[in-house]
Design a binder for these strands. Sequence first.
RNA 1: GGCCCCAUCGUCUAGUGGUUAGGACACGGCUCUUUCAAGGCCGCGGCACGGGUUCGAGUCCCGUUGGGGCCA
Length: 479
Amino acid sequence: MHEKTSSVRVRFAPSPTGSLHVGGARTALYNLLFARREKGTFILRIEDTDVERSREELSAQILSAMEWLGLDYDEGPYHQSKRYDLYRAAAERLIAGGKAYRAFETPEELDTERKAAEASGRSYRYSGAGRRIPPEESERRARAGEKHVVRLAMPAEPIVVEDLIRGRIEFPADALDDFILVRSDGHPLYHFSVCVDDVDMRITHVIRGDDHLANTPKHVALFRALGSPVPRFAHLGMILGTDKKKLSKRHGAAAVEEWRDAGILPEALFNFLALLGWAPGDDREILARGEIEREFSLERVGASPSVFDPEKLLWMNAQYIAAMPGEELLERSAPYAPSAVPERETALKAIELHRTRARTTIEMGRALSVYADDPAAYDADGMKKQVKAETPGLLQRLAARYEALPAGEWTPERLEAALREVAGEAGVSAGKLIHPTRLALTGTTVGAPLFDVVALLGKETALRRIGKFLEAIAPRSPA
RNA sequence: GGCCCCAUCGUCUAGUGGUUAGGACACGGCUCUUUCAAGGCCGCGGCACGGGUUCGAGUCCCGUUGGGGCCA
């Protein structure tokens, strides 16, 4: 567990209405980072009061995505759906204290008022009629079972929010009307349950997406009505797709698990997300988690939105792959291998041969399988370009030369020398032999240095693959 | 429609009144090289616009434009 020496308490509060998006992940990450830096507590709260849209398995999905990314929380997960009593009690307290009131208008009446306002060109605002109902009457009508909502009595003064990232923001008093806290069916509404929970959980800092900024005056009014200290706010810029629109499924991989499945390492995504809106202040970009936790600060977080660039994520992932210890890289790439993985010693050597060539663990997994299974097919373009009339003859001579090579001399250097001798004797450039050989051994025209590959494959496998290739390129003999 | 937020290369960003505006991704070239990468070197490319304030604005203020959000 983490040392907690301050009273700083932050939370990440996702709605389980979809998988964890990178935007949400970044919000969670900044909360975590802030908590670590301040030696505070990071809380996870699932906002599942929207019964129609919330689903249990999505909640589990979010939890597993967070775990994978290393977004570990100190408290929770709390579920709002299990906290209805709290909201009900808070609503009653607010009514009793005159901070909120019952409103008995029917939806139809409100609709009429709205239409009238629009017709006369004014923007609609709730009349506040419920405010003027005497408490005894309100009480009596409620007890008689008359349908009503609960509304917050908004103050007449403007509300000022001191945002840690944006500075002072003033919202005019007439911009907000007495919004609904509790629906007529007794269901607490989003803004209400959020604030009641933040109070109950003693949240000191609310770090969340920009999309909640305009809701903040409501929350401030609610905290005050509840008689509780108002937390500090920090609103993060949105994460956008490459078309500058809010990142969504349309943009391709917007969910954390999609990146996991694409072979992105969690530490790379962690690093990448940390840098989407925050920078250490110097030119470092590859930062270990510990460094980020030590250096993160909200003062250095930018206010503007940022575009999620998959290209740069891929580059960063490649950096992590290049630097990761072989054993670990093997362990983490093996699950992505399309078929078998060679035995450990070979696999570790293969890792070293391919670590600068693989941007994802998927690519690394694919590279590993090449050393375990003979090619199932040969690259079509490569066949066209590299296989010439003289190719079978050359390959046969090479195979014969390799066959004769003593086991002790099966090294990249000797293998290269032997191939060059064969090419020299045949009066062709080495490339005429190198490229078809690569195709024969790996099925492709690209990859690690050929002689390292041949050496690693071993004599038996290399010769077998050349033989198979010769069969594949031999002209069909008439039956 | 009302209210609010945002604005440095295509993208992520450094920059907090005096900088040849720095770095990274991407892109182009060169190099290395059997291929593909990685690496190294070089290059392309930016302060949205208009007014102020100031001896001096990327930096401060106002407006415009453009993007975004919330409410309706």
